[in-house]
């Protein structure tokens, strides 16, 4: 029963969404079912956010209560979650500090704490890319050498200083890189991977709809 019901639901929902593509929404029941199902999905999606809030609270509360290693971080996480969430849940009619409009506590925390912190994390990519490139980009074989040369050309092509340098070698060199590397070799490889991955995804979806693949439910 625990497996059959989800498999039946997956089969019916998958079938309706797959078949409805081939029918006009205003003329058939299947076509009308599709938007209905999609609205359900967005509603269910909203409810699942509570699951996350419960999990994060339970895991971190347990860590603090049992004084687990690094419990201080858990305490900070709990404080951050509630300081950010509670004022935004209260109605803004009570105070302009509540809700999520401009000038609210939530907005202030988001603009001046959350946003710069996230941008900093993303900015760290520059450091990591440099160190990974330095460590991994070695001309160990013929293939690696080709990769290295192509990467160097593309890196030069993507920035004005590099482009000026490429133009000093030949005026049309940046255009050639765009045509032959980006729209040639790169595109062919990307297409190969995209087609392969799309087929893999379609095959997996089919296995799920037909109930052959059940490992995602813990079965099989």
């Amino acid at each position: 029963m625990r497996t059959t019901v989800p498999v039946v639901i997956a089969f019916l929902s998958g079938l309706v969404l797959a078949v409805s593509i081939f029918f006009r929404p205003d003329k058939t029941i299947i076509g009308q079912l599709e938007p209905e199902l999609l609205v359900w999905v967005t509603i269910i999606g909203g409810f699942t956010l509570f699951l996350g809030a419960v999990s994060i609270t339970r895991v971190n509360f347990n860590a603090v209560q049992r004084r687990k290693k690094g419990w201080g971080y858990s305490l900070l996480t709990l404080i951050s979650v509630f300081v950010m969430a509670l004022p935004s849940l209260l109605p803004s009619t009570w105070s302009p500090l509540f809700g999520d409009a401009e000038g609210s506590i939530y907005d202030w925390l988001f603009q001046y704490l959350d946003k710069p912190m996230m941008a900093t994390m993303f900015g760290m990519l520059a450091f990591y890319i440099a160190s990974a490139a330095y460590r991994a980009f070695r001309a160990r074989s013929a293939e690696a050498t080709i990769l290295l040369l192509t990467a160097t050309l593309v890196m030069l092509w993507r920035v004005p200083m590099g482009e000026a340098f490429l133009r000093s070698i030949h005026t049309a060199l940046p255009e050639w890189i765009n045509t032959y590397v980006m729209n040639g070799v790169n595109m062919a490889v990307q297409r190969g991977i995209i087609i392969g991955a799309a087929l893999g995804a379609a095959s997996m979806s089919l296995r799920i709809i037909l109930g052959i693949e059940r490992t995602y439910m813990g079965k099989g």
């Binding site: 991977i193 392969g196 991955a197 893999g200 052959i212 693949e213 490992t215």
Partner: peptide
């Protein structure tokens, strides 16, 4: 890479039914 990700579950299971896919 790419579809190898989707193949991984079938490959690890070694079940003929999954490999058929």
């Amino acid at each position: 890479m790419g579809e190898e990700l989707y193949a991984a579950s079938s490959y690890l299971s070694k079940e003929p039914l999954m490999l058929g896919g």
